[in-house]
């Protein structure tokens, strides 16, 4: 019924704790189309990674999806059993994690980890799978792949290992890859290479990407659309150009304002005052109200729902007021 590749509807993730239920993700909705790159940004603890983990069905207990739906290719996947979800992981939804140094099993050769994944999801023979593994290593730009395929992870540098991780995530051509901060642990000089590689591969294979990061530069360069998360909710989601150039939510404005501009050396680094509220005491109304320079009465009383403003959805009363005035 929907033509979106992935649709997340009113997702809520809760953690039962000794002090009661903690709602880490509250009423988050977004979608990703085929071949599209959705960037997800926000501060640490905003719920970016958690949303990604929920999509691949690997939320760490005691965290659980308490409400909403995740629909992949028209099929609801958030309520599948472990074994059914396992068949989707890797096959339809790939994943890339933050730290390439620890993402690979140190005791197995890169080739064995690739062939194992390929053979889990396809009927390829070991010989075929190995050929495919070498092909994949070539594709992710690893020199001398015939030799490298038999080497162990510790024989690769960080950047090379992240290439291997990308090869592993894409080895059976999933429709979607959830990349959770794929470059955060890498040298700045290598980050750009890895992002460019990911972008190119996904474009070549028509793979959609959910790119979780806190690097606005990466988003601006890579994403088609971007979702800005704050305290477990989406503050703003829209086409990347609009969100970056004409941020609507005061939080997004703050985020954009805090990117230092090269050349402006006389200025102090700008930052958003205060810090994100703890999940245990999210203020009533808009979660951003204590830090928002434009907050007014309504922001402290009611929680804003996303409002469509010029193709961007913004959860902010500022825009509702405007609409009401017209």
């Amino acid at each position: 019924m929907s033509k979106h590749l992935l649709e997340v509807k009113n997702l809520r993730i809760e953690f039962p704790t000794r002090k009661g239920l903690l709602t880490a993700i509250d009423d988050v909705s977004f979608h990703i189309d085929e071949g599209e790159v959705l960037g997800v940004v926000g501060e640490s603890g905003a719920g970016k990674s958690l949303t990604g983990a929920a999509i691949i069905g690997l939320l760490e207990p005691p965290g659980r999806v308490a409400g909403g739906e995740i629909v992949m290719n028209g099929r609801r996947i958030d309520n599948l059993g472990y074994e059914e979800m396992r068949k989707i992981r890797g096959r339809e939804i790939g994943a890339i994690f933050q730290d390439p140094l620890t993402s690979l099993n140190p005791l197995y050769t890169v080739g064995r980890q690739l062939t194992e994944t390929i053979m889990t999801h396809t009927d390829m023979t070991p010989t075929k799978a190995r050929e495919r593994a070498v092909e994949l290593l070539t594709e992710v730009g690893i020199p001398a792949p015939e030799k490298r395929v038999d080497q162990y992870p510790h024989q690769f540098s960080g950047g090379m290992r992240q290439r291997v991780v990308i090869a592993l995530a894409l080895c059976v051509n999933p429709k979607l890859v959830v990349a959770d901060e794929p470059t955060t642990a890498l040298d700045v000089s290598i980050q750009a290479q890895i992002i460019a590689l990911l972008k190119k591969l996904c474009r070549d294979h028509g793979t959609a990407v959910m790119l979780v990061t806190h690097d606005m530069g990466v988003i601006a360069e890579t994403a088609d659309r971007v979702a800005v998360m704050y305290a477990g909710r989406i503050a703003e989601i829209g086409p990347v150009r609009q969100v970056v150039k004409q941020a609507k939510h005061p939080y997004t404005e703050g985020l954009m304002g805090s990117i230092p501009v090269i050349g402006h050396t006389d200025e102090k680094l700008r930052q958003i005052e205060g810090s994100m509220p703890r999940l245990t005491n999210i203020p009533t109304g808009c979660a951003f109200n204590p830090r928002c320079p434009k907050a007014f009465d309504r922001c402290f009383k009611e929680r804003p729902d996303p409002i469509d403003v010029d193709g961007t959805e913004v959860a902010c009363w500022l825009y509702d007021k405007e609409a009401a005035h017209v």
């Binding site: 074994e83 396992r86 890797g90 994690f97 690979l104 194992e116 994944t117 889990t120 592993l168």
Partner: peptide, 17 residues
């Protein structure tokens, strides 16, 4: 708890593997 086990699960490997 390690990342490579998480990543192995994320690749859809069987529980046994």
């Amino acid at each position: 708890r390690t990342d490579y086990i998480k990543f192995a699960r994320a690749r859809g490997l069987t529980n046994r593997a």
